[in-house]
Design a protein around this nucleic acid. Structure first.
Lengths: 128, 128, 128, 128
DNA sequence: GTGGTCTAGACCACC
DNA sequence: GTGGTCTAGACCACC
């Protein structure tokens, strides 16, 4: 038995994931102002430096831009935004298929499992 | 923005997950002998107490049984084994649908994304 | 009179400049190991986090790579290395020409000034 | 690796440099009146004491003279003015050559780099 | 021993 | 008030 233990994702990466998700959903649109580093730090209860690291990495990704003294903003880059949604979805789908596969399910069975679960949701709302 | 940071799953839970997965896949069958606690601890490089905790929890789940002086074995309980597979699959499917939904995908779109990705695998093998 | 006061360059950028210069000169070659973050921090008397920031930025530039537990190395990327030398030289030349120009020198005069100074060095060695 | 970090030049020195540069260019000529200390302080947004220090040092350099009740003037000292231009140019050239040399360029190569860049400017204007 | 993450907090520059 | 830099130091993961 070979086990690769999962370590927790660093906090700054989890923050990036959350913000990317909000962009993917359209909760944050190009031009929108993000909370200031200090404000977000207070709200999510982490050190401002941790927020700064997340913001800096997102700047490298060209997802946001910081205007000194003005704040931090989602970049006006519509192309990137739709890419983020696709990329995050693609990753989720692949992770899911790999997991089902590692449980011993075939392609056909995976498809059936998903359809069955989605059918339960038809008409009704998605979980909570 | 509200963020719930993911902590790393405790190692003993990750070990349980791995073993459940092997049972779901059929790599471990009812009656099969598990490695001794000491041996497994050495192989996966964790403290023997951590293995002991994993084994104890699996005994409570009625997944394994310890025979004094003989070792630890997967319980002969066919019903449970297929339950494990279904339960793990169900969890994976629900986690996946929730994630896609949180990215802004509808039921129809989720289905389409899965089918598209599964189609890529037809004929070919699943990801490595 | 409009003056833009020059602030000091951040320490981490000065460290990057120094290392780029060593690469440009060939004092550091692809594959060479850089000092560990802690060691360099001690030697140049700055906080290890400042060194780490410099190293992280150089990784983004694809100039170095860090191997966890092993250390940090100049990337094996000969193309980049010669680019660095050219880029740093180009910047120096342009800065110099702009400065001479702001002092009121024409293209011909700048050329003459450089030649005159270089002639002094012929045969002899460069400054100190 | 030995690094001497560059601190920012004191503001009063940067002011002196700017004024010397204007003199070198001929924007300020012998006999020209400088702004009053108070006025310059307001214009460049620094403490009046900083301006006073800059003016005092330039008086010591014999570059300017203060006439009580009249103001401060560039000294009528044609020799000095051309000296300033030559001295600043000389410094710029030497700094430049040292920098190119520290990047590993020989005398011949430095000359070639400068000529190449100057040629780009022929006919066209100098950078912006 | 190596790098990676995070905290707590100072001080600065720009607005 | 905003972000940018830096320090001091803890604790962790990987080797």
């Amino acid at each position: 038995m070979k086990i690769n233990f999962d370590a927790a994702k660093p906090i700054y990466e989890q923050i990036i994931d959350q913000i990317k998700k909000m962009v993917a959903r359209g909760d944050l649109k190009p031009g929108d102002k993000l909370p200031s580093q200090r404000e977000l730090a207070r709200k999510v209860q982490v050190n401002p430096n941790t927020i700064q690291r997340a913001y800096r990495e997102m700047e490298v990704l060209d997802l946001i831009e910081t205007k000194r003294g003005m704040g931090t903003f989602i970049k006006d880059n519509n192309n990137l935004v739709s890419n983020i949604k696709d990329e995050m979805a693609q990753n989720a789908v692949i992770r899911f298929i790999k997991e089902m596969n590692s449980l011993g399910f075939t392609v056909k069975e995976i498809s059936a499992c998903v359809e069955k679960e989605l059918n339960k949701l038809e008409g009704g709302d998605i979980y909570e």
